[in-house]
Each structure stands twice: as structure tokens, then as C-alpha cells.
Design a protein around this nucleic acid. Structure first.
Lengths: 190, 190
DNA sequence: CTTTCTTATTGAACGCTGGTCAATAAGATT
DNA sequence: AATCTTATTGACCAGCGTTCAATAAGAAAG
């Protein structure tokens, strides 16, 4: 009825993001409709468009924060103490997979989404995350690795995560496989 | 107007598949709508549902044939003469990437689609294709490889193709990278 | 040839989607 | 108190996949 809410329950970007993130993670990008988000927020779907240009842009703001989380995971591994660099390298690989599979929907949204509307926005995020990863790998590799080899490692980890995202397998179910895949990649880098 | 076409231009499953395949490849699964397919066929969109249960099923029948094409690619490599098994192994890896990137939309549809409707159908296709791949690799590997290692190789190739599918890069643009990725994986299998 | 039966097609309808926008009321400013 | 800015609504649009009663073309039977 009333075309504006009273001050104490006005819509905020933060409230929208919080609800939208949950829905995106639970249902994926396509199935999380603007109307569902609005229903959960108890507002009209039109109102969201006052705060965000469109669905893709709302999504973009959410996903950018997730890339930072991945960066933090890699950083924490680098700071951890370990027997030697090879163990740390293994940890980087293993934890990358763990991140991807324990945040499958996020990962999908971050690296696999194919929506044309979204693609335009997502360029820096994945790139910055990769650079972070590459630096970590380079600093830990036993011998100096070529840029191409680091890229191959990344794509190989990406393939693992991608596959088990599609089949919606939990990390627990494939942690042994994850470990052997990480070991496989260590082999190639030595 | 007329609720049935004259005999010489009745709709056939083959005609629908032919048009639908083109549209799926050109525009992807989501964007290729039943109405667009019907328009191209110059029939009503309802008519397609007489021949196919739904969009996912139409898609399924198309994609099953594509998996067979990938099998053929692998077979032809196995039959080719080569200096040694390592060269053949390299060829398998390289040609797998080539197949994926020269049929990007097919590959996406085959291995990356996340549509819930479709997922139910697609189980045997990718599995059979992988078994074919695994057998080929196993028969060519210099030393006996573990099942896990072959799986790692596959996932690593899959990651390469997946990434460049998402960025819509042509095979030509990354053939050197494809070559070095294949070489990287050879390293890990020896 | 006529009637009956099967088969293939149409197009309206349903409920959903992302997105736009005039109307409007709450809060801030003058 | 009057004006201005801001945030919200909900009707509306074009498109989607899917269903289905109505219907005409072709085949089969009498």
C-alpha cells in the first residue's frame, strides 16, 4: 500500500546482500530470483532495483567479497608453520580444493558462471585471486617454476573442483582423492 | 490456423534435432528457447512437445551423439602411428583439449551444464566417455599408472578446457598453452 | 465414397522470470 | 507550513517452459 516504509525498517544494501547471498548459495544464480529475494526481505522486487542496477550487479558485489575469503585462506596457509616447503605447497593445493568444495555455490558463481550479464563485471576478481595463488606457489616451489607450469597447476585444481561441484559431492566424500590429486600435481612440479 | 500440416512438411524428430543442435551450440542451453527453435522450424512451440517430452530431453538426445564424437577422436589417435607411446599420450591429451575448445558449446553442454532438469538424464554419457579416455591413457602410459593418477590427468585436462570455455577463447589462441599443459601432465605421469 | 479413428499441430493459457516506471508517501530541508 | 528529496510500491512488459482442448490431415474400416 504505502509507497515508502517507515524509517526503522527501510531497506539497506547490507540487508539485501545478506539475504541474496544466502539465496544464491542455496539455489544458485538462476534459481535465486529477484522476487524470492524480495519476498524474504518482505519488500517488493522493484525496491531492490533502487539499490542495485540489476541482478548481475547485485551478484557481483556479493561475489567480490568471496574472492577475498579465498585470498585469506591462501594467506593463512603461507603463515602456518610446516615441516618444509613441499608440505606447504601441498597444503596450498589441498586447501584450494577444500575451499572450492566447501563453498561450492560460491565457487561456481565465482569461476563457472556463464551468464552474459554477469561476465562483464567479473574480471578483476578471479584474476587477482589467481595472482595471489601464483605468488604463493612460486614462493614455495622447490625449484623455480615456469609461469606456464603454475598456470597448469591452477587449471588442474580448477578441474578437480569444477567436476565435483557439478556432481555436488562434498569435500568429505573426496578428501582422499583431493589429497592424491594434490600429490599428483606436486609430482609434476618437481 | 490449420491444426495439422500437410504430409510433405510434417515435423520430424530429425528436423527438430538438427535445428535445436545449431541453436544450442550457437546460444547455449538457456538462451536457446523452445520458441526460437519452433520459429526456425516454422512450427508452433507446442508441436515440439509432441516429439520430445521436454526441453531437457530434447537436449539429452542431441548431446548423447556428441559424446560419441569425442570417443571417435580418441579412437583415431590410438590408431594413428607415432614415434612412441609418449607421443601418443601427448596426442591424446592435446586432442582432448582441441575437441573441447573447438566444440566449446558442446563441451559445456556435455560436462558443465548445471540445469537440474538435465542432470537427471546425463549420467552414462560422460562416464562412458571417461572410461574410454582412461583405457586409452592406461594402454599408452610408459609405466603402469594408478587409477587415481589417470583420474587426476582427466580432471586436469577438464580444468583447462573448462576455463577457456568460460572465457570463450579459441583453440588457436591457446594451442601453445594447450601443448605445454599436456606436457606438464606427461611430466606427472612419468 | 463415407464414416470412423488415429495422429500431428495449433495457439491460448498458466505461472514463472528480469526489468521499467509513474505514482506516491516518508523524511529532510527551507 | 511548504517544498524538496528519497525510497517504495505494484502494475506492466516481453520472454520463458509447459500443458492441453480444439481441430484438421491422413489412415483404416465399412
Amino acid at each position: 500500500m504505502s509507497p515508502r516504509k517507515s524509517a526503522h525498517d527501510e531497506l539497506t544494501k547490507e540487508a539485501i546482500i545478506s539475504v541474496a547471498r544466502n539465496l544464491f548459495v542455496q539455489e544458485g544464480y538462476a534459481a535465486a530470483s529477484m522476487r524470492k529475494i524480495a519476498d524474504t526481505l518482505q519488500c517488493s522486487h522493484g525496491a531492490i532495483y533502487y539499490h542495485f542496477k540489476n541482478k548481475a550487479h547485485l551478484f557481483y558485489e556479493i561475489i567480490e567479497a568471496d574472492f577475498q575469503k579465498l585470498d585469506q585462506v591462501l594467506d593463512s596457509v603461507l603463515r602456518e608453520s610446516a615441516e618444509n616447503n613441499e608440505h606447504k605447497l601441498f597444503s596450498i593445493f589441498y586447501r584450494y580444493i577444500q575451499f572450492g568444495l566447501t563453498h561450492q555455490k560460491h565457487y561456481e558463481l565465482m569461476f563457472l558462471i556463464h551468464d552474459d550479464d554477469v561476465k562483464g563485471y567479473l574480471n578483476e576478481g578471479p584474476n587477482k585471486s589467481y595472482l595471489h595463488f601464483a605468488q604463493a606457489v612460486n614462493s614455495l616451489a622447490p625449484k623455480s617454476l615456469s609461469i606456464k607450469d603454475i598456470w597448469s597447476v591452477f587449471l588442474s585444481l580448477h578441474g578437480f573442483v569444477t567436476h565435483y561441484c557439478r556432481t555436488e559431492t562434498t569435500f568429505e566424500e573426496v578428501k582422499e582423492l583431493a589429497s592424491s590429486h594434490a600429490q599428483f600435481l606436486i609430482k609434476a612440479t618437481c
